[in-house]
Design a protein around this nucleic acid. Structure first.
Length: 420
RNA sequence: GCGGCUGUGGUGAAGUUGGUUAACACUCUGGAUUGUGGCUCCAGCAUUCGUGGGUUCGAGUCCCAUCAGUCGCCCCA
């Protein structure tokens, strides 16, 4: 029997938690600054929430953890947006919340892919959804929020890729053109592309298998099928980004894997060489019909998701200094049979809201000092049988080596004064 | 899902054409030194080389399978 984490899953160990907590707190902080509110949806939902008709994405078609009970078919969530929109509609938040509804989420996602660096089967995403208002400036604001997070972690080597898929009219016209164009080449297209041509012809352009074929290069361009409205919308998004000082690159091949997008789509990628194949830090876009799909009104929304594992690993690579907050205000050393007294002293200090550790074994003074060092104690309290008799303790501050003897009653006061 | 590479203690690793006590460094544990440590010195810490089979008189070293990681593809966060 082999007891190890399932393939593509990972324990986050105590030594790593400080980084996670810091990154999560930065993200929550920034989300708050943009006046977003947190929402938590279940880790599994009815399969149908994720697997929607006409969805050609691999994530939904090949990578989902789906399972059945006697009465229902469920799936572990592969992404956050579907659950959030489902909740938004189910609880009719469009009626009770000010629009745009500004929501953020944080949690694990599950995809059955072959693991690699920056790609796990259980991974964590922070994401936001801004639902109900369709204005180019909102799109820019959403991108700015993600950009702020990345910048806050001192990640410099990135670029923002952006594109527009246009509105329904533009995209339909373009789809028709693509189908007409590719149908004569059908025999020459790869298997995935056959499916894509049916479900979402835009993604044929994205195909890496067929990309070098001549007819690919001469394929119709989306830009030529955008109507004036869509072009104007995109222009305003770009000019808003300019106003915010966010540099970007227009990438007309950026289509993105999820089929529900329209208008603005974007992706922020690392430009570091060591980022390997998994360079995308966050990505997202606008969706026009998602809210209706789950039974709500016709509202447009926009959102993105950030991969936490990738973000943390990049922040480290880029030299971001994480705080190590595991130090202790006081460590209590006991000499002789004083365990009970040590316990009492610790108890008093903890009641006073201090972080305290101490030694409850019979151990040599030396090894106890070692433990105190390891606990990064700001103050070391030494308590022996003599002190117990005299109702005092010795307190030593390791950095200054200063030591005082105080009465039991004054420990909390002394520690608080000296540590501050 | 496809192809390549890798897998030795808590960590970084050495291990020659298979040859019998698995180097070295760090960490750790104990002691020198049960009343003031972080230096120094001494001692200890892998019946075993990811796991399971096989070849062989003999396997960490060869073969097969399997698991995991990693790189590329695909996809994406």
């Amino acid at each position: 029997m082999n007891y190890q984490t399932a393939r593509g899953t990972h324990d986050i160990l105590p030594s790593e938690m400080a980084e996670w907590n810091e990154v999560e707190s930065i993200m929550k902080h920034i989300a708050k600054a943009y006046h977003y509110q947190e929402i938590r949806t279940p880790y599994f939902e009815h399969l149908a929430v994720f697997k929607r008709e006409n969805d050609s994405s691999d994530m939904v078609n090949k990578e989902m953890y789906a399972f059945s009970t006697e009465t229902e078919t469920l799936a572990l969530r592969p992404e956050g947006t579907a659950g959030v929109i489902r909740a938004f509609d189910e609880h009719k938040l469009y009626g009770s919340m000010e629009l745009p509804a500004k929501l953020f989420y944080l949690g694990a996602m599950f995809r059955h892919e072959r693991p690699q660096k920056g790609r796990q089967r259980q991974f964590h995403q922070f994401g936001i959804e801004n639902i109900g208002i369709k204005e180019p400036e909102v799109d820019a604001e959403v991108i700015a929020l993600g950009y702020d997070i990345v910048k806050k972690l001192d990640i410099q080597n990135i670029k923002v890729l952006i594109n527009t898929l246009g509105d329904d009219e533009s995209r339909n016209a373009y789809r028709t053109a693509l189908r007409e164009y590719f149908t004569p080449h059908l025999d020459d297209l790869c298997g995935d592309c056959h499916r894509r041509l049916e479900q979402n012809p835009l993604r044929v352009l994205d195909c890496k298998v067929d990309k070098d074929k001549d007819y690919m290069k001469n394929a119709p361009k989306l830009a030529d099928y955008l109507n004036e409205e869509s072009k104007a919308y995109f222009e305003r998004v770009l000019s808003a980004l300019d106003a915010l000082g966010i540099p970007y690159e227009i990438d007309d091949h950026l289509v993105r894997g999820l089929d529900y997008y329209s208008h603005t789509v974007f992706e922020v990628v690392s430009t570091r060489d060591d980022s390997a194949a998994q360079a995308t830090i966050f990505g997202g876009g606008r969706y026009d019909h998602f809210v209706e799909y789950f039974g709500g009104p016709e509202l447009s929304g926009i959102g993105f998701a950030i991969g936490l594992e990738r973000l943390i690993s990049l922040a480290k690579d880029e030299g971001y200094a994480f705080n190590n907050e595991d130090e202790v205000d006081a460590y209590v050393i006991g000499l002789g049979s004083v365990q009970k007294e040590v316990l009492k002293v610790m108890h008093e200090l903890r009641k006073a809201d201090l972080i305290v550790d101490g030694n409850l074994q019979m151990r040599s003074l030396k090894s106890q000092f070692k433990s105190a060092d390891r606990a990064k104690a700001k103050a070391i309290i030494i308590l022996g049988e003599d002190e117990v008799k005299a109702n005092t303790v010795n307190i030593k501050w390791p950095t200054s080596k200063e030591q005082v003897t105080v009465s039991m009653e004054d420990i909390v006061k002394t520690i608080k004064e000296k540590n501050a």
